[in-house]
């Protein structure tokens, strides 16, 4: 069966890169005693895929991975054992069986919601920022740097105290990294952006109609 696992990436592991996390889960499944399905061939590997890589230094309360496991295993047991095997770095938030025909996490992702906590009270009213006709940004793509308008890719951008909440486009097309938005916002405000002025958390990954991947 295919299962979808929702997990958090906690502060203590926020400096792990995507490959490190993949390797980590591959081993966590074995430690947890989850019976996995493997690919054929001389170097069999577990069949698992992550929804969307997360940048180094960013924590999350809504990461996803899909895995193929041997039928008939108890989902609550998998959740508990996997959670234990993660020793606190990641919390396993839910484990659900994926019905046949549901697209995998990677292709289901459409949006990502983030929060950014600023150390200081440096953000004034954001109305001006979102009121711009277009928000032109240099975005790195495979074919070099391109200027694009990211305004239509921002679905929400609200300030609550020192915390900025935003939902942006994510997935294989039009993926907006949080840094890209924040950098742009800072320069609009005439400030120099640096990663240590803000604590970024990915809140969740969302599919069509802004539904969290765990509820699709």
């Amino acid at each position: 069966m295919k299962i979808r696992i929702k997990f958090s990436k906690n502060d203590s592991v926020k400096f792990l890169g995507h490959l490190d996390i993949m390797r980590f889960f591959q081993r966590a499944f074995v430690r947890a005693g989850v019976k996995m399905l493997y690919s054929e061939g001389f170097n069999p590997h577990q069949k698992m895929s992550f929804a969307q890589p997360l940048g180094v230094g960013i924590t999350s309360t809504g990461e996803y991975l899909d895995a193929d496991v041997v039928d008939g295993q108890d989902l609550t047991e998998i959740k508990e054992n996997l959670d234990k095997a993660c020793q606190g770095g990641f919390d396993i938030l839910s484990v659900k069986e994926l019905p046949l025909g549901v697209p995998n996490a990677m292709s289901a992702v459409k949006y990502a919601s983030y929060s950014a906590d600023f150390n200081d009270n440096i953000l004034p009213d954001l109305n001006g920022f979102m009121a711009q006709e277009c928000i032109l940004t240099n975005k790195k793509t495979k074919s070099g740097v391109k200027e694009i308008d990211i305004k239509p890719l921002i679905y929400k951008c609200e300030l609550n105290g020192n915390t900025l909440h935003f939902i942006v486009s994510a997935g294989s097309e039009n993926n907006i990294k949080p840094d890209l938005l924040l950098e742009n916002l800072m320069s609009f405000l005439g400030l120099q952006y640096s990663r240590d002025m803000v604590k970024i958390t990915r809140r969740d990954l969302l599919g069509d109609n802004f539904i969290p991947l765990s509820d699709l």
């Binding site: 203590s12 890169g17 490190d20 081993r27 230094g57 770095g89 990663r195 240590d196």
Partner: peptide
């Protein structure tokens, strides 16, 4: 709760910061 000896600014600026943060399995 483990507090890193290095602050986030430093950790974000060096290669492979997880070399220095411990907490491994």
């Amino acid at each position: 709760d483990r507090k890193n000896a290095l602050n986030d600014k430093i950790l974000l600026s060096v290669e492979k910061p997880a070399r220095y943060t411990g907490g491994e399995i």
